[in-house]
Design a binder for these strands. Structure first.
Length: 414
RNA sequence: GCGAUCGUAGCUCAGUUGGUUAGAGCGCCGGUUUGUGGUACCGGAGGUCGCGGGUUCAAACCCCGUCGAUCGCCCCA
């Protein structure tokens, strides 16, 4: 009776080989860069009580109603696999007394879960890098955060073809006025908008601005812009951010159509965008979310943050080779296997990556080792003169390995 | 939720207008050759042709359904 092999869950991925190396490279680079900017590492739970997300995102939104992995635990409590980092970090800031550290710069990375249709650069379990500055109202925090993002992309070697798009949503009052003006503008031409955008007019009018429909374009082009509604303070804030970016040497372009769907976003919104990833071009995005803490029952707390998809960054980084093995020890005859094990252990103690090759047809073992592209091969075999060894150096990097072998040889061979 | 394309060996893919026992390369295993050697040759294992139904004398191939993958739409915290 054959047993069916369980299939992987839709939207999950098993990352292996060169892709896994690219993934690790992204994470390692992030860890290095966040230390340069003195962001403190935090480890967050992978699941939270559902209200952590539903209250911060808004009960009625699509994201909450159908794109979260929510379930009842055995105690009957509704829990949710985290679909983002920000809400959980905000919760911890309030419940763990992190206010004492404000302004607090934290960074983390790990898996997130969203119930969505998989497509290029989009998975149901995916992974993000995340950086937040909490309790900092000043525009310098935005600049610092963006400078780190910019340096990260440069150090990953993916900055080419990636542009920082920047916008401001203003303070709450500016934002509300802009929103009202947009609704009025689009409502007057509603019949001529695309079907999708007519829907958006009802529940998310700001999204009409980045509609992909050709027929929406001309109405988007002459839509009211946020600049007409910005208060003096909001203008000053945005000016301080852009001025700071210029001083930090961070290139940016204004995108007045860049918006955020959620109400808690204020002031700065930004995305690093590329055209090299198909329909999912945002590589890193974030903004200022001064209104979030209050939705979780906390005091008014200014904060700004970003997140970046590790898979998308890894795709831009491209496949990366795995490290070549320093040395392969080949037991060319079975009676040398114990000697080969000993030698392998010794090489590893000395800090060389070493692989033992002692299986399969003895006469093909050396060829297999040679094909693997290791820096050096030490082969052992018994012939009429006893156990003999042979070192083969594939490249100049192997000189030290031969020296190491010559030193350990008297202690290993009989 | 919607649409398009695609599912043949571990991997990459052939497979003609439907026609005998479904193939190749790579990889894997074994043998021979070579014997400081990454060579060459021979052999072997490995397939419910995603799954289920239908049409037909006959289906990997045509039709329907289903599952999965990919890409896009919607959405995007």
């Amino acid at each position: 009776m054959a047993i069916d092999t369980p299939k992987p869950v839709r939207g999950t991925q098993d990352i292996f080989g060169a892709e896994a190396e690219a993934f690790a490279f992204v994470v390692e680079t992030f860890e290095r860069v966040r230390r340069l900017y003195r962001f403190r590492r935090v480890e967050m739970p992978v699941f939270e009580r559902t209200d952590v997300f539903s209250r911060s995102l808004g009960e009625t939104t699509d994201v909450v109603s159908k794109e979260m992995y929510s379930f009842l635990d055995r105690g009957g409590e509704s829990l949710t696999l985290r679909p983002e980092f920000t809400a959980g970090i905000a919760r911890a800031y309030l419940t763990d007394g992190w206010r004492q550290y404000a302004p607090l710069k934290v960074a983390t990375h790990g898996p997130l879960f969203r119930y969505e249709r998989p497509q290029k650069g989009r998975y149901r379990q995916f992974h993000q890098l995340d950086a937040e500055i909490i309790g900092a109202a000043e525009p310098q925090a935005d600049v610092e955060l963006l400078a780190m993002a910019d340096q990260l992309l440069k150090e990953l070697g993916v900055a080419d073809g990636v542009v920082l798009q920047l916008n401001t949503l203003g303070d709450a009052a500016s934002r509300d006025k802009w929103r009202a003006a947009l609704i009025e503008h689009f409502r007057s031409v509603a019949a001529e908008l695309s079907e999708d955008s007519q829907q958006r007019l009802e529940h998310n009018p700001l999204r009409i601005l980045d509609s992909k429909e050709e027929r929406d374009r001309r109405f988007v082009a002459d839509a009211p812009q946020i600049d007409q509604f910005l208060s003096g303070e909001a203008q000053d804030f945005f000016g301080a951010v852009t001025g700071g970016l210029d001083a930090a040497g961070v290139a940016w372009t204004r995108n007045p159509a860049l918006v955020r769907g959620l109400d808690y976003y204020r002031h700065t919104a930004f995305e690093f965008v590329t055209d090299r990833l198909g329909a999912q071009g945002t590589v890193l995005g974030g903004g200022r979310y001064d209104g979030l803490m209050e939705s979780l029952g906390g005091p008014e707390t200014p904060a700004v943050g970003w997140a970046a998809g590790i898979e998308r960054l890894a795709m831009l980084v491209g496949a990366r080779g795995e490290d070549v093995t320093d040395v392969i020890i080949v037991a060319e005859s079975d009676d040398t296997i114990h000697l080969a094990i000993k030698a392998t252990a010794r090489f590893r103690e000395l800090g060389y990556s070493a692989e033992l090759l002692a299986s399969g047809s003895p006469r093909k073992r050396f060829d297999k080792a040679a094909k693997s592209g290791a820096n050096a091969i030490v082969s052992l075999r018994t012939d009429m003169s006893g156990v003999t060894s042979n070192v083969r150096e594939a490249n100049p990097a192997a000189g030290k390995i031969e020296q190491a072998w010559l030193q350990m040889k008297p202690f290993i061979l009989p």
